[in-house]
Structure formats: structure tokens, C-alpha cells
């Protein structure tokens, strides 16, 4: 495609972009503005009163220990979730690349789970992890009382981290496979002639060349873990037990939608949005710099 291809005039491109712009305005800009407005007020759910409190909602949340608890849980969830999804995807991609002939079949098989929605996956894993009827419940017949994800905070965190990684691995896998394929075979062949085994070749050649993709995938996964992890937590643990899996996205939901605390939950969503923006900016910044260096 020629990069110089362009429409003339202003109307056609605007009209072509309009549906998308309307959608974004309706479902992103407008709600964001509204949430920002609410976050500066104490609002009644039915809209019959609203008192301007400036940054009052923010200072209240920032002095509330449950906010920091949610932040800590989010950080823990993101760190483990992102590293697990990257590590497993990387391992699978490297394995598939090792045997390019048989790899094709596995490539398809490993991409499929990407099509499963978070809440559906939550339900499936909830049954699988059920301490009384699920396959993991078998552990309880070996060691009674061992597997109790709904009572034990660590186990429930493990469960949602695993579920999150499950949703991310296929996407990461696709990116890694594509990136590995782009590495010239000569490099690997030359290293092999010098006596480097597959592990050494992976560490010294493939991994360094995957750096941009690793960074890209990590950012995407991080943002997903801030936002789209909601469905998993909602179906599997509802933030429990004892708020062990109460990540920020889920706290926003319970405060706003169950508690009808529109002000507090708006202030929290603005802060979550800042976190996501920060992650995006870091990524853009690093990519720009790399592009400049390479260009």
C-alpha cells in the first residue's frame, strides 16, 4: 500500500470516520466526562441532588486503607498475571518454532482459546476449581481441606491469576510466533554450527531480538490486567475472600453498581484511567525512542 494514498477534501474522510467517532464519543468521551464531573461532586443516585466537593472524593479515597488494599491487590495480580502469561506464551512459541514442521498444527490449537470470553472462561474454571465437585477438588480427597480457594486468599489469587494468564496467552503466543519467524534462520544456523544448543540460541539470539514484542505484549497485558480482568474476578471470586482478589476494577464496580456510590467510584475510575494512561505513555515513549534510533 502506498503511504501517499489519501482522500481529497475533508468531508469524505470525516464521514467515513464518523460512525467510529460517534461510537467513541458515546461510549468513551461522554462517560469519561461524566465520571470526571461526578468525581468532583457528591451525587445522589437518582440525580436529585449534587454537591460540589472539589477534590474531596479523591482525598477521601486516598486516605482510605481499602483503596491501598485494592491497589496492592491490583499490583500483585498484574505482576503475577503478566509474567505468567508472557512466560508461558514465550515457552510455547519457542517450542513451536523449534519444530517448524509439526508446529503448524499446534499453532492453531494454541490460538483457539483466545476466542473464549472472560466470563465464560470464569464459569468453566470455577467449576474446574470447585473444591467439592471440580477436578481440583480431588486434592481434597488426598489432603482433606487443602484446596479451599473460597476461604484461602492466596489460593483464590492463584486461581484468578491463572485464569487471567489463560485469556492472555493465545494473543501473546501469536505475537511471539510471528516475531520468532521474522528472525533470519541464518543466525540460528550459524550459532548451531558454532555448537550452541537450542537453549543457548534462544537466550543469546532469539530473546534479545524479541525485546520490542516483549515490551509491547507486557504493556497490553498490563492494561488488560487493570481493566478487562473484571469479568474473571466477578464470575470466580467476587473480590473475596476477605478482599484478597478485590482488584481496583472490581472495587469500582462494587462501589458504583452495587453500592450506588457514584462519586467515590467515579473518583476511583479516574485514578484507574490515569494508571492506564501512564502505562500507554511509557510504551509510546519507549517505542518512539526506538523508532528514532532505528530510523
Amino acid at each position: 500500500m502506498k503511504s501517499s494514498a489519501r482522500f481529497h477534501g475533508h468531508w469524505i474522510p470525516l464521514a467515513l470516520g464518523l460512525p467510529q467517532l460517534v461510537l467513541i464519543a458515546l461510549f468513551f468521551y461522554w462517560p469519561t466526562l461524566k465520571a470526571f464531573w461526578w468525581s468532583l461532586h457528591l451525587v445522589c443516585p437518582f440525580g436529585n441532588c449534587s454537591t460540589f466537593v472539589g477534590l474531596g472524593n479523591y482525598t477521601r479515597e486516598l486516605t482510605d486503607s481499602s483503596f491501598y488494599a485494592a491497589l496492592r491487590t491490583t499490583a500483585l495480580f498484574a505482576a503475577f498475571g503478566v509474567s505468567l502469561s508472557i512466560a508461558v506464551a514465550l515457552f510455547l512459541a519457542a517450542m513451536v518454532e523449534l519444530h517448524r514442521r509439526t508446529g503448524g498444527l499446534f499453532r492453531y490449537l494454541l490460538i483457539w482459546p483466545y476466542a473464549v470470553a472472560g466470563s465464560v472462561l470464569g464459569v468453566i474454571l470455577k467449576v474446574a476449581a470447585s473444591p467439592s465437585i471440580g477436578p481440583l477438588g480431588y486434592l481434597n480427597t488426598l489432603w482433606p481441606g487443602f484446596w479451599q480457594p473460597y476461604l484461602n486468599g492466596t489460593q483464590s489469587m492463584l486461581m484468578v491469576v491463572f485464569a487471567f494468564a489463560w485469556t492472555q496467552i493465545p494473543f501473546n503466543f501469536i505475537v511471539f510466533v510471528a516475531a520468532l519467524r521474522a528472525i533470519p534462520a541464518e543466525y540460528l544456523a550459524a550459532a548451531a554450527i558454532d555448537g550452541a544448543d537450542p537453549v543457548r540460541r534462544f537466550i543469546d539470539i532469539q530473546l534479545p531480538m524479541l525485546k520490542p514484542q516483549l515490551f509491547f505484549v507486557a504493556t497490553i497485558n498490563l492494561i488488560e490486567s487493570f481493566t478487562n480482568s473484571f469479568a474473571i474476578v466477578d464470575t470466580m471470586t467476587q473480590g473475596g475472600p476477605g478482599r484478597a482478589t478485590n482488584i481496583l476494577a472490581y472495587k469500582i464496580y462494587t462501589d458504583g453498581f452495587i453500592g450506588l456510590d457514584l462519586s467515590g467510584s467515579s473518583a476511583l475510575s479516574m485514578m484507574l484511567m490515569l494508571l492506564v494512561f501512564a502505562a500507554c505513555f511509557v510504551q509510546f515513549f519507549v517505542f518512539e525512542r526506538r523508532a528514532r534510533q532505528e530510523g
Binding site: 477534501g9 468531508w11 469524505i12 464518523l18
Partner: peptide, 10 residues
């Protein structure tokens, strides 16, 4: 002419 086509789409 162009802008009227755009307006129609709009």
C-alpha cells in the same frame, strides 16, 4: 459536489 455526497452520508 463532494461535500454534498459527504453530507448525504452524514
Amino acid at each position: 459536489m463532494k461535500s454534498s455526497a459527504g453530507a448525504r452520508i452524514l
